[in-house]
């Protein structure tokens, strides 16, 4: 894996890592829905993830429309590179 260099890459890397924890905990909880420790761990990471995604969207580009920092002038959602183009 390419080591993240810029501040933007580092922030996206952090989002990928925390999001991975959330996906793992989500799948685990699907088959263990009464495990309190796992629920607590999921909630903690999900809060962190939402904050990170919000900050990233404000600073750089929206990851999804719900936390987009809409400009009146341009529709950034479609003007920024798509994820398969590489470099993100």
């Amino acid at each position: 894996m390419m080591q993240p260099r810029s501040e933007r890459e580092m922030m996206l890397h952090k989002i990928n890592v925390i999001s991975f924890i959330c996906v793992e905990m989500q799948l685990y909880l699907d088959t263990h829905p009464y495990e309190c420790d796992a629920i607590e761990y999921f909630n903690r990471n999900m809060t962190m993830l939402n904050e990170l995604k919000h900050d990233y969207s404000q600073k750089y580009t929206p990851l999804n429309l719900s936390n987009a920092n809409h400009s009146d002038q341009k529709w950034e959602w479609v003007l920024d590179p798509m994820p398969w183009e590489g470099g993100c």
Binding site: M2, H13, I15, N16, P62, L63, N64, P83, W84, C88
Partner: peptide, 11 residues
């Protein structure tokens, strides 16, 4: 909902 990033980076 679409999230505009890959689950794991591809470069």
């Amino acid at each position: 909902n679409y999230e505009k990033r890959l689950q794991f980076p591809v470069n």
